[in-house]
Design a protein around this nucleic acid. Sequence first.
DNA 1: GCAAAAGTGTTCATTGTACACCCATGC
DNA 2: GCATGGGTGTACAATGAACACTTTTGC
Lengths: 238, 238
Amino acid sequence: MDIINCINQVSIDCVIFGYENHQLKVLISKSRFKGDFYSLPSGFIFQNEDIEDAAQRVVRERTGIENIYLKHFNVFGKVGRKRQEFLDKLIALNYVNQEEEYQNSDRYKWFINRFISIGYYSLVDINSVIPQTSELDESIGWYNIHDVPELIMDYNQVLQDAYHCLKSDINELSNIYNLLPEQFTMKEIQDIYETILEKTFIRTNFQKKILELDVLERLEKKFTGAKNKAPYLYRVKK
Amino acid sequence: MDIINCINQVSIDCVIFGYENHQLKVLISKSRFKGDFYSLPSGFIFQNEDIEDAAQRVVRERTGIENIYLKHFNVFGKVGRKRQEFLDKLIALNYVNQEEEYQNSDRYKWFINRFISIGYYSLVDINSVIPQTSELDESIGWYNIHDVPELIMDYNQVLQDAYHCLKSDINELSNIYNLLPEQFTMKEIQDIYETILEKTFIRTNFQKKILELDVLERLEKKFTGAKNKAPYLYRVKK
DNA sequence: GCAAAAGTGTTCATTGTACACCCATGC
DNA sequence: GCATGGGTGTACAATGAACACTTTTGC
């Protein structure tokens, strides 16, 4: 990462939601440095790169997914938003007795300025992703939305903000269909809605509501081997 | 404006909507340089300034209004977003035969890089504002939303984007009440809704809808001298 | 009294919610 | 046949749209 080629004091922060088995999770990385430094995936914007492409790149680097639907949900730009505090703590824990050397070096001067975060969120299928660490990560993994550790900076707040927007955008997101295989049942959609919105729907009414959106076409039935009526399969209309 | 104290390559762009007499207008400035360079009010972010405060400052400098409700509606960050083209044209028209001097000077190098616009919109009462030019403006004025001249950069697109958000946020905007005096009639609110949304409402149903929002309290009647029943006055609940 | 415009109420259609009922499936 | 879960239809409530009717105001 050569900061010279990047826009200064601006960060792209991605809240990557993942769905699996009735659970909504978020992708969070842990720094390879001592101390529990958890963070949202983020990155900088190259000078020759659209900001949306930068966000796509961040998602791709961590998940391998290309061209996912991304939504800008907010910007964060208070004066006090600095990595200073977090970095001071990191250096104190990892470079004992070398603090002064680091504080006087130009090496991370650019890094401690206040900076603006441009927030994007996306929603991916956990089963189609093998999370990738960056060179600064010890690990990266999925955390249930209600079981997220304390993150550095104000990222817990950023995350909650993204979650709020995801909920209110769920109907506009024809892209929850990115979570599903080519063909899927109504129950699978309902599970996703119920998980994200954290409420239950009456099965029969939910079906009507979704079909009224007029974005799905009904295919043949799906015989699962279960001893009950086979549900129809659907796919997104072309 | 000392760019050293500002965040580089980031601009705050404000779409300041104004309402007056059944018309929705937008505040647009014209550059004092030769050539028809129209622009949205914009500014930079000081290093010691929240981005929201920077937007408040832009609005205050142009309208005198303090602490108006501001809404972030989008960011614009394509690689091609540069002032280069606009500036080249400006210099060609205003500094004839000095183009080379300008192109080689460091004086506006920082100014021609690609930059990111953080967009905010607000809604103000035209009658309570006397628009103020900046040092670079020849004039500044209100233009009907459907009669906006060609703006520099991609600002026509930015404006349309803001207008779209204003429409869909109108109910969330308890702040259309900033347009109105302390006390107002139901008809005044209806006029604003109809102007912004560009559709008409049935008077009696509109009244029910607004009162159901449960944000207004009814006061005494307003006797205007007109020979008809006096309408009630309302004000926003505390 | 009368025209103008505001307040209230009523009707009808649309949408949403809850649930009863029937149907296919595999054992 | 029977338990399981999916599909269809129905009854009722809530909301929204259109409009009739009544009330107030100043001349």
